[in-house]
Each structure stands twice: as C-alpha cells, then as structure tokens.
Simulated assay, not measured.
Amino acid sequence: MRTALVIGTGLIGTSAALALTARGVQVHLSDEAPERVRTAASLGAGTEKPPEGPVDLAVVAVPPAAVAETVVEVQRTGAARGCIDVASVKGVPRREFTALGGDPAGYLGTHPMSGREQSGPLAAGPDLFEGRPWVLTPTAETETEVLNLALELVALCGAVPVVMDADAHDRAVALVSHTPQLVSSLVAARLEDADETAVRLCGGGIRDVTRIAASDPAMWIDILSANPGPVADILSSLAADLDETVRALRNLTAADADEHAGGASGIADVLRRGNAGRDRVPGKHGQAPASYETVTVLISDRPGELARIFADAGAAGVNIEDVRIEHATGQQAGHVQLMVEQHAVRPLEAALRERGWGLRQQ
C-alpha cells in the first residue's frame, strides 16, 4: 500500500492515519470539520490536500449511521481501489450500503477493537491498535485485492486480524463492549446525586468500574442506535440476574435460617459465576489469563516518582506485568500496585525497601 484516504479524523481515523504515515504510506485526510483535519495534519497524520487520483485504500472512519452513504460516495467518485470502514457496528451499515446500490466487491466492513474514553484527533496515537484484534467481515463477494489491502492495513497498524460474520460480530461487541459501556454509565450515574461524604470514599473499585463512563455520549448514541437489539437482549438477561441478586440480598436480612441461607447461596453463586467469567478474559498478549501477585508501594505525588519505581524494579531484574494507581483522598500521595509473577515478589520487595520505598502489607 502506497496511498490511503482517511475519511473522518476522530480518534480511530487519526490513529490509523498516524500509524500508516509512520510506515511510509502517503495519507490524505478528509473530514466534514476542517478544524479536525488541520489538527490531525499538525500531528503528522497526513496531508490536508486531496489526492490527485485514486488511492489504494479509503478508510471510512465516520459514525455508523454515515458509513453506507460515505462508502457509496467513495465508490461513485472512484476515489480508491478499495474501501473499508472502521465503525464498531457491522450488520446495519452493510445492509444500508446494499440498499443504496453499493458495489460489495470493493467494500469490506472492519472494526479495530481498540479505543479510549477520550475522542477526537488529540486523543489519537499511532500505537492505539498495537496487539489488538481487528475484525474483518468479508463476504463471498469481497474482492481478494480489497481483502489483501485490509490485511495490509491491519499489519501496518500492528493489530491482529480476526475474520467474523458481520452479525456475529455485532452480537459479540454487544456483550464485550456496548453493554459494559451502559453498565459503567449506570453505576457512575448513582454518584451524580450521592452524598459528598460517600463520593470522597471512592477508591480503585469504583474508578475501575466507571472509567469508561467518561466516554462521549453523542458517539455512544450513534453506536447504540446501530446495535440496539443485541444490547437490549443482554441487558434483559442482566436485569433478570439483578432481580435474583436483589432477592438474595433481601433474604440475607431474614430471620428465618433457611431464607438467610438461600440468600447467601444466591450471592455466592453470582460471585462464583463472576469469577468464572473473568477467568475467560484473555490475558497478556491474548494468552490465557495469568494470576499475578501484587506489591503495593506508597508513592508521593511528585514528578518522576513512577519512573523511579519502574527503574528500580528493572534494576532488580523484575518485569512489571501490570500496574494500577490509587490516589489518596485529600493527600498528595497514593498507592501504586505492581502486578508481578509470584517468584518475583520477594526480590522486588527487597529491592524496593533497599531503595527507600515504603510498602503496604497485603
């Protein structure tokens, strides 16, 4: 691939453009908002100038509702040899594209399974897709050249190609992406009118659950409007589980021993099923999830402190598998949780203590 046209310079479009440009592809940028194009271009994502002729691949990075019309327009004008979209919903855009008379041979629906709670070109980065799945939904009509161009794009972005049926993809993302967004927002909404004393007690748990609740509502309305059925089905099942859990919690207050035991059993079942489901989430590099030990370090809120911890861990020959930060309310301090292999716990603790770090006992 030598040339590409990226239509839509938000988070995903600009990130793809940055990755392609970094690997020598001439990228042309287009967006209905000129200021976003200028911002993306200033970041090094490509040029604002339109291509002089057909590019190798057009990447349509617009909301799901605009995908079909945009792809048809690309085909009508002959702007590219092949065209893909990167919307997070695949079935509806494909059906709308077909209804508009688009050429299915030259179009392939795709979805990079990567993102951030921030949106816009300033949130973009060339490494956004590194090691992440990138779903491709070819049909029997998809030209081999278009599929190969899409695979080349995925490789240039450092992602991992996954081939799926469009509707199967939509059911999958309803479970692993769209429903979690709504659940996170629902939990965060409980905080809106909560007592200030309660809010000040927020710790790592509530921050983990509500992180993606900071996402752009307008963007998510576009996404959910294109995939409402599968999301509603999952939420309906979740609602039934919630009803059972509420009943179990009520039974825990019962004086009757059997009712109390039934409530405890119901809660235990929810927690057990949660453990089983969490164990299926892929771990590092997409491998089976690993179980790590946690070393908690007390840290002050000063520049360079995190870098110093990582440097000290590296000097001890310990690889940090994951990291979490929990800030102390009302203080310029907090805790850094370092996740490491079990055999690395004692060497890491000894090295950190030797270098003056305070550790919290688990």
Rank of each mutant, 00 (worst) to 15 (best):
residue 85 D to H: 04
residue 171 R to N: 15
residue 89 V to L: 05
residue 102 G to P: 01
residue 342 Q to P: 08
residue 306 L to G: 01
residue 215 S to F: 04
residue 154 V to R: 02
residue 140 A to H: 05
residue 112 P to G: 03
residue 314 G to S: 11
residue 173 V to T: 09
residue 70 T to D: 12
residue 165 D to I: 03
residue 125 G to H: 15
residue 204 G to T: 03
residue 209 V to S: 01
residue 139 T to H: 05
residue 327 H to W: 10
residue 197 T to A: 11
residue 309 I to G: 01
residue 68 A to I: 07
residue 7 I to E: 00
residue 23 R to H: 09
residue 131 G to Q: 05
residue 108 L to C: 03
residue 151 L to Y: 02
residue 306 L to M: 09
residue 268 A to S: 11
residue 158 G to K: 09
residue 354 E to N: 14
residue 323 V to E: 00
residue 319 N to L: 15
residue 123 A to K: 13
residue 1 M to V: 06
residue 165 D to A: 08
residue 189 A to P: 04
residue 189 A to V: 03
residue 160 V to C: 10
residue 177 S to D: 03
residue 26 Q to K: 08
residue 28 H to G: 07
residue 159 A to D: 06
residue 47 T to E: 12
residue 11 L to I: 14
residue 270 V to N: 08
residue 8 G to Q: 05
residue 88 S to C: 07
residue 117 E to W: 15
residue 148 N to M: 06
residue 56 D to N: 09
residue 305 E to Y: 10
residue 168 A to G: 05
residue 351 A to E: 14
residue 83 C to E: 03
residue 280 R to G: 11
residue 169 H to G: 03
residue 103 D to R: 02
residue 199 V to A: 10
residue 316 A to W: 08
residue 53 G to T: 13
residue 9 T to K: 07
residue 276 A to D: 09
residue 21 T to E: 08
residue 335 H to Y: 11
residue 2 R to M: 13
residue 206 I to T: 01
residue 22 A to V: 07
residue 359 L to C: 06
residue 325 I to D: 01
residue 80 A to E: 01
residue 228 P to K: 01
residue 91 G to C: 05
residue 50 P to G: 11
residue 80 A to S: 03
residue 130 E to G: 11
residue 321 E to T: 13
residue 68 A to P: 05
residue 270 V to W: 14
residue 36 R to E: 10
residue 39 T to W: 05
residue 243 D to W: 12
residue 139 T to Y: 01
residue 213 A to Q: 00
residue 268 A to K: 12
residue 13 G to P: 02
residue 52 E to H: 09
residue 302 R to W: 04
residue 245 T to I: 05
residue 46 G to E: 10
residue 113 M to C: 10
residue 36 R to L: 13
residue 287 Q to Y: 07
residue 64 P to S: 02
residue 131 G to K: 06
residue 182 L to A: 00
residue 88 S to W: 01
residue 332 Q to C: 07
residue 123 A to C: 07
residue 37 V to H: 08
residue 6 V to T: 06
residue 71 V to P: 00
residue 321 E to S: 13
residue 47 T to C: 12
residue 200 R to K: 15
residue 99 A to W: 03
residue 74 V to P: 02
residue 69 E to L: 11
residue 263 G to Y: 09
